[in-house]
Computed example of a mutant assay.
Amino acid sequence: MSLVKKIVKRMKVKNELARQVMGEILGTFVLLLFGCAAAAQVKTSRETKGQFLSVNMAFSVGVMSAMYLCRAVSGAHLNPAVSLSFCVLGDLAWIKLLPYSLGQILGAYLASGLVYLIYHDAIMEFSGGILTVFGPNETASIFATYPTDVVSVQTNFLDQVVGTAMLMLCILPLNDKRNAPAPEALLPPIVATVVLGISMSMSANCGAAINPARDLGPRLFTFTAGWGTEVFTCVLY
């Protein structure tokens, strides 16, 4: 046995829940790294290196890649709403809901931090060195989603409920043995296509987050990285 294999064997995590949470951290990290990096590229290049569709497609590729990466370990929920649904359906123990959710948020936070490091120079040039949540040179929307100023809180709430419900309605039957389930190997691209469809059709009001971890993790990062408390209160114009 090679030295590398011996080291890997010794580092193997034996606790099942710990492995699952690590899987969710890594999977959500990959998802957000693709998506937020695409958003940074589009925003800082002023749409000369991609457009809004580029971000939608990048998030979808992130979903597919993350699912192939950690589905066998944790189920690749990547989303507290998905984990909650699985708890309600009895497919995930309720005791795992909080660790899963915290892992997903942490993965999103870490990915946002790496995107910030990669695109730091471009962000600073675009924003004039001022990290803001509003105005023509705002950069907060690279990381988290924000509602438009013409949409009411009630409509935004309905928007997210419908978007998340559509996600669950479309992906839960894929593994249902009583409903002509999709082949296991094709589940990631199918789910990615569903996410792409939702992103392309339900983004206008507030960005189609449909994932508390996808939004909260990056929002917490922007709060700690210098955008201030306005990341929790401000509406983009």
Score class of each variant (00 low, 15 high):
Ser60His: 01
Gly27Trp: 02
Val195Leu: 14
Glu230Arg: 12
Leu216Arg: 00
Leu158Asn: 12
Phe223Met: 07
Leu131Lys: 13
Val55Ile: 15
Ala111Phe: 02
Lys14Ile: 13
Pro218Asn: 11
Asn156Gly: 15
Val195Met: 14
Leu31Asn: 04
Ile142Val: 08
Pro181His: 12
Ser74Cys: 08
Gly113Thr: 05
Thr139Leu: 08
Val191Ala: 04
Val30Arg: 00
Ser65Lys: 01
Ala180Cys: 10
Ala18Cys: 10
Glu125Cys: 05
Lys14Val: 14
Ala108Val: 05
Gly90Pro: 03
Thr193Gln: 09
Asn56Trp: 07
Pro136Trp: 02
Met168Glu: 14
Lys9Glu: 14
Thr148Lys: 02
Ala180Lys: 12
Ser141Phe: 04
Met22Pro: 14
Tyr68Ser: 05
Ala192Arg: 06
Gly75Phe: 01
Pro173Asp: 05
Ala180Asp: 11
Ile95Thr: 14
Gly217Gln: 08
Tyr119Asn: 09
Gly128Val: 03
Ala165Ser: 15
Gly113Met: 06
Arg10Val: 14
Ser203Val: 06
Leu97His: 09
Val63Thr: 08
Ser201Gly: 09
Met64Gly: 01
Arg219Asn: 04
Thr233Val: 06
Gly75Thr: 09
Pro181Tyr: 13
Met168Asn: 06
Tyr237Leu: 14
Ala192His: 05
Ser112Gln: 12
Leu31Asp: 04
Ser199Met: 07
Ser85Lys: 04
Gly217Asp: 08
Asn156Cys: 15
Gly62Phe: 01
Gln154Met: 06
Val21Gly: 08
Met11Ala: 13
Leu3Ala: 12
Phe34Leu: 07
Val194Gln: 05
Thr222Ser: 11
Val195Asp: 06
Ile210Arg: 03
Ser65Arg: 00
Gly50Tyr: 02
Ala58Ser: 09
Ile142Gly: 00
Val195Thr: 03
Val162Gly: 00
Met202Ala: 15
Ile190Leu: 10
Met1Asn: 12
Thr148Ser: 12
Lys177Val: 11
Thr44Leu: 05
Lys43Ser: 10
Thr224Ser: 14
Lys9Thr: 15
Ala18Arg: 15
Pro136Tyr: 04
Thr233Ala: 12
Phe223Ala: 08
Ser152Phe: 00
Gly128Phe: 01
Leu106Pro: 00
Ala37Tyr: 09
Phe134Arg: 08
Gly129Leu: 03
Gln160Ser: 08
Tyr100Ala: 03
Ile198Phe: 01
Phe34Glu: 12
Gly197Gln: 07
Ser60Asp: 07
Leu236Ala: 14
Pro80Thr: 07
Met168Thr: 06
Ala225Cys: 10
Val235His: 08
Gln20Arg: 13
Lys6Tyr: 07
Ser85Trp: 07
Leu17Glu: 10
Ala72Met: 13
Cys234Ala: 15
Met168Cys: 04
Ala144Lys: 01
Asp215Glu: 12
Met57Tyr: 05
Met22Ala: 12
Asp149Ala: 10
Gln160His: 10
Gly217Asn: 07
Pro99Gln: 12
Met22Glu: 15
Leu98Trp: 09
Ile198Ser: 02
Cys170Thr: 04
Lys49Gly: 02
Ala209Trp: 00
Ile198Glu: 05
Ala204Gln: 13
Lys6His: 08
Pro147Phe: 00
Phe143Pro: 00
Arg214Pro: 05
Ile118Thr: 10
Ala58Gln: 03
Ser85Glu: 13
Leu220Ser: 06
Thr145Phe: 03
Lys14Gly: 15
Gly103Phe: 01
Ala204Lys: 08
Glu184Tyr: 08
Asp176Lys: 00
Ile130Gln: 14
Ala144Val: 04
Pro173Glu: 07
